[in-house]
Design a protein around this nucleic acid. Structure first.
Length: 496
RNA sequence: GCCCCCAUGGUCUAGCGGUUAGGACACGGCCCUUUCAAGGCCAUAACUCGGGUUCGAGUCCCGAUGGGGGCACCA
């Protein structure tokens, strides 16, 4: 059942300060699902008010990652929309206007304290083991005086005038009511001395102006959630629904992912960054299915979902507030499921760039023949290289030792290979139906096991001990090449 | 240190006062089998602890413990 029937306007609001990671992708996914399910809008807003942390190219990478995942937005910095601009750095005047409104209404004030003095206050508080907070020196400066000092060019910020008493109750959709004593809240700065708004103000103003109905964000905002409610209420605005998603923990479930662990992951072919996942051989469908289930469940039974299913079945009240450990083996599982779910021609087309990017001269026609026999063996797309690169190599070079079958000597193996070669030479072609019968007869005639003889053939023809099914592979490789490789194997066994 | 949030197998989770505590991944075993997979079957494995409330608590309340988050002119 849909958790909301009226169209939701939902925004994903990242800062362009680094790579899009799994946590961000999951938030964006839930945003997207809610918007699609209700026939609403998914909005991309760039929160780049901190120019010091701005990373060139991050915004582009972010959009590329979202598109790769299949999460497209109808309003954003690149596509525009009726509530733009969608980059906060371009909305400076808007925030200043609303901040001034707050000041005039007595909900905010100008503060002229220097960063140095603030730091000193902080140090003293820490020495006394107190919670660090602004000492409210400028809280009661009359507006006329403040305006005069500003006119004189005095450097200043704007702080929110948090109530000194009472408590603030807010509602998180997953956790219910949360009440915080106002004394725990600081008089937070909402506009910096450079005139740019801080998140607390900017996000609230934008969410209101952009008519956001549901704010889905990380749980790091939970401690300042009451402050945000206070700001919204000071303006007299309607509050959107708030949902705070918990963070992802490292695979062990003990603690969050550290820089070091993020680096170590790549050794195992994993990454928490969306930009890496494509190259690592993951399908967007697999990644989506995986992250959707990290903090959300449908019925506790069904786990295989496409985007369409998720749009239909997603529901905010099935979200789980507890932190979840990232489990990459489960990503492998979902990726395998989605690879197997592909039409073989689709798989062949997807595999094409995987081969060519590694300098393997694959062609689509051959890939289409190979796809059905490797499909169920793939966990990631690049596993196809190990399974099928030999199809495109002019010759293979088996290790002579690998050509010796278990329980046989080199000479015996060579004799077996020789017999296989003779039989194959007598056959008109190497199609499965032509080859399999005679080969099984041969195995029986020689008093050997299928494993022994086919093992020799496999290594001879594919050059490797693990391969797709032998006879199907032979058919794709073709008679000439098969015979050539068998002859080579007989020679190699001579010297083994 | 102060504040906030969370708590079912190793991991992701279902459960919303009475269940043989269900599913998935991983792990182990078996079947299938020319290798590797896929598929099928089986097994091991959980309600953090202590108090309440109740005829009855994984489920409600309190506390402890553990984990996470926050305490910036970052978001």
């Amino acid at each position: 059942m849909a958790s909301s029937t009226k169209p939701a306007r939902v925004r994903f609001a990242p800062s362009p300060t680094g790579h899009l990671h799994l946590g961000g992708a999951r938030t964006a996914l839930y945003d997207y699902l809610l918007a699609r399910q209700t026939g609403g809008q998914f909005i991309l807003r760039i929160e780049d008010t901190d120019r010091k942390r701005f990373v060139p190219g991050a915004e582009e990478e972010l959009m590329k990652g979202l598109r790769w995942l299949g999460l497209d937005w109808e309003e954003g910095p690149d596509v525009g929309g009726p509530f733009g601009p969608y980059r906060q750095s371009e909305r400076k005047e808007i925030y200043q206007q609303y901040a001034r409104q707050l000041v005039e209404a007595g909900h905010a004030y100008y503060c002229f304290c220097s960063p140095q003095r603030l730091e000193q206050v902080r140090q003293e508080q820490m020495k006394r083991k107190e919670a660090t907070h602004y000492d409210r020196t400028c809280r009661d400066i009359p507006l006329e005086e403040a305006d005069r000092r500003i006119a004189n060019g005095e450097s200043h910020v704007i702080r929110f005038k948090t109530p000194l008493e009472g408590a603030t109750t807010v509602t998180d959709l997953l956790r219910g009511e949360i009440t915080l004593d106002n004394r725990q809240l600081d008089d937070y700065i909402i506009v910096k001395s450079d005139g740019l708004a801080l998140y607390h103000l900017a996000a609230m103003v934008d969410d209101h102006l952009m008519q956001i109905t549901h704010v889905i964000r990380g749980s790091e905002w939970l401690p300042t959630f009451p402050l945000h409610a206070l700001i919204i209420r000071a303006f007299g605005w309607e509050e959107p629904e708030f949902v705070h998603l918990s963070v992802f923990l490292k695979p062990s479930g003990k603690g969050k992912m550290s820089k070091r662990e993020v680096a170590d992951l790549s050794k195992d072919g994993y990454s928490i960054f969306v930009k890496d996942l494509d190259e690592l051989g993951y399908l967007p469908q697999g990644v989506i299915n995986w992250i959707a289930l990290m903090g959300w469940s449908y019925d506790g039974q069904t786990e295989f979902f496409h985007m369409d299913d998720l749009i239909e079945k997603f529901s905010l009240d099935k979200l789980n507030p507890s932190p979840a450990a990232i489990n990459f083996t489960k990503l492998d599982h979902f990726n395998g499921l989605h690879i197997r779910d592909l039409q073989t021609d689709q798989l062949a087309a997807i595999l094409m760039p995987v081969f060519t990017s590694r300098g393997i001269n694959a062609d689509l026609e051959t890939l289409r023949k190979i796809a059905p026999i490797i499909q169920e063996r793939l966990v990631t797309l690049d596993d196809a290289i190990d399974f099928a690169a030999f199809f495109f190599q002019p010759e293979v070079t088996p290790a002579p030792d690998d050509l010796i079958a278990k329980g046989l000597t080199a000479a015996q193996s060579q004799a077996a290979a020789q017999r296989v070669l003779e039989v194959l030479e007598g056959l008109a072609d190497v199609r499965v139906h032509t080859v399999e019968g005679p080969m099984r007869e041969l195995v029986e005639g020689m008093g050997l096991s299928a494993g022994q003889v086919f093992g020799i053939m496999r290594v001879a023809i594919t050059g490797q001990k693990v391969s797709p099914p032998l006879f199907e592979s032979m058919e794709i490789i073709g008679r000439e090449t098969v015979l050539e490789r068998m002859r080579r194997a007989v020679q190699l066994l001579q010297t083994a």
